[in-house]
Design a protein around this nucleic acid. Structure first.
Lengths: 107, 107
DNA sequence: GTCATGTATGGCTATATTACCATATTGCCA
DNA sequence: TGGCAATATGGTAATATAGCCATACATGAC
């Protein structure tokens, strides 16, 4: 197997990092249902509007969401349907951890 | 849709955070092929042995890898096959970004 | 034009993360 | 037992991240 470059992993880690935050995870999750504007997302996240705006900027930067303006409101849209696989993976890890706990394996 | 708790996203973000680092992404990637010991992983990552050890601790903590000792060496093993879906998702985002770039969409 | 609303940005502080070095721990072997 | 090899842990400094407040920017209404 040929070694992948540092760049290779840096680019992918950048995307993963964008996902890896509770508020951003929430945002991505709710956007799976339907597109929402900043105000609605701010309500759902329960943080300062500026904070949510910054989270959205991070998600947009790596291409996970896109946005378009309609009048005053900026609507954010989930750009990658594959995200379901990401969430599935997280669930799978949690389930696996639970199973291990149940069967008495530690650490 | 009922709102998921803050806890819900925190737990999942914890796992995502563990994945979201270039070195740890590399580690997870190579472990998909076969289990490796700390020394081998240290070589591949190209960082200090203690640094790699700490990365492995982080991965172990969230249940992405397990380890077992055989003599002096500690062998790390990928615990969740679902990780492929995670990697697929990252690729998918990158491909999607490239397509957008090509079609002249900016920002 | 002014005003109000929705969103983004700058500035700042608090906290988290990362990496390295030094050192402790563990287990094998002479 | 002493010494060596593989790995883990503690400490510390540099950097990154996250949150809030204040404020700038953009758009539509008047």
């Amino acid at each position: 197997m040929r070694m992948k470059s540092t760049q290779h992993y840096q680019v992918r880690a950048e995307i993963a990092k964008a996902i890896a935050h509770p508020s951003r995870l929430l945002i991505l999750d709710v956007l799976r249902n339907r597109s929402l504007c900043v105000g609605e997302l701010t309500q759902l996240v329960g943080a300062d509007q500026s904070t949510v705006s910054k989270h959205l900027t991070i998600l947009k930067k790596v291409g996970l969401v896109t946005c378009h303006k309609r009048g005053l409101t900026m609507t954010y849209r989930l750009e990658c349907s594959c995200l379901t696989r990401f969430f599935d993976c997280l669930e799978s890890v949690l389930v696996s951890n639970l199973k291990k706990q149940e069967s008495g394996v530690r650490g």
